[in-house]
Design a protein around this nucleic acid. Sequence first.
DNA 1: CAGTCGACCGACCGGTCGGTCGAATAGCCG
DNA 2: CGGCTATTCGACCGACCGGTCGGTCGACTG
Lengths: 208, 208
Amino acid sequence: MKPSVTPISSRDKILEVAEVLFARRGYAGVGLREVAEQAGLGKSSLFHHFKSKDALYGEVLGQVLGRIRAVLDPIVGSDVTPELRLEAWVDGLVDVLATYPCAARLLMRALVEDDPFGPELLEVNAAEQVLAGILEGIHGLLDDGVRQGVFRDMSIPHSVQTLIGATVYHFASGEFGENLLGQPLVSSDAVRRHKTELVRMLQHGLLA
Amino acid sequence: MKPSVTPISSRDKILEVAEVLFARRGYAGVGLREVAEQAGLGKSSLFHHFKSKDALYGEVLGQVLGRIRAVLDPIVGSDVTPELRLEAWVDGLVDVLATYPCAARLLMRALVEDDPFGPELLEVNAAEQVLAGILEGIHGLLDDGVRQGVFRDMSIPHSVQTLIGATVYHFASGEFGENLLGQPLVSSDAVRRHKTELVRMLQHGLLA
DNA sequence: CAGTCGACCGACCGGTCGGTCGAATAGCCG
DNA sequence: CGGCTATTCGACCGACCGGTCGGTCGACTG
């Protein structure tokens, strides 16, 4: 039990502030000087911990995706009906996006980017693998449901896209969404309401 | 009828290439040199037509939002049941997003940004007004439906967010979405399928 | 004590950023 | 033709970009 003299390592501090900044202003909108400054370091010190801006970004992204996958994987692997699993999936995803307010923005930005990252970049590649795992999970879940006849026949890729759009976008919408809702996106009331609205939409649509 | 000697004005050419570039790489990711170059002009000439980068961006955004509003406004004002109006709204929005492939990305980026544009910027403010008009339209449409009892009771702001996420995100997802679908996002097949999936989701949800 | 090591720093590199300026050019009207 | 405005241009600016370099400092090791 003496894991660290420094209660929070500089490396983690950098990741922490980089996550916030990349989420807020995007990859191109963030300068490493600002990251360093907010981490309480000189800019040169960033390069001691990360070999490039790309690598730092990739690691931030991978960390966020990892958190999401850690929540979602047990759910898609659980042993209940596809309907309940889907409900739990939405529930879990909304929870984790609400818990880490930067995650949705970071993720949405990454999805909307044509990744300009060359074929070879260790950290970014790792992040993409994690994302692929998440997708595989929800795809399998929907597929199960369709084959068991509890979900109607559907285009699974389109439905996956709709699920992503309906969950991730909402928490990525920042000021815009808060103006629309009239309250913080991650207030417990808004989170609860968003969950029930999503689940009702998935179960019965909008009609009375 | 002699508005222009040049059949396509430099100004329009600039707007055209700026739209593509801002959509592809975002505000911070695009340099004015590149815009000028692709428009076949020197960088200084941009500043003859637009007083700043912000102003150019605002005008691009306003133009895109204007196209969308031009499609959606007649629909929300039409004289049929809310259910049919909603279906037409989704149909129209999907069509316009598929017609102008940059629109969705530009819009999604704008929504995810906390607009860092100061209180006063003519062009950006104008764009926000257009957006506000679009939102007012869909809000009113849903409200009508709920009050007439054809839509179930719901949180309208949350449903608006879900609609935006499900439509705009899909067409903004670029490479990622195309990999998921296995075909171009704007292929007529994918567009048709996305429409029917959305409408079925709104009408009956996912259940069999 | 000397040697090594990870963490950190300021100074600096070439290059690009958004933006300005004054001069040159092109098309119009008289 | 002369004058005028609109348009374009290259040269330039200060600020900032991602990234490198040489070196300092303190903790640990033999």
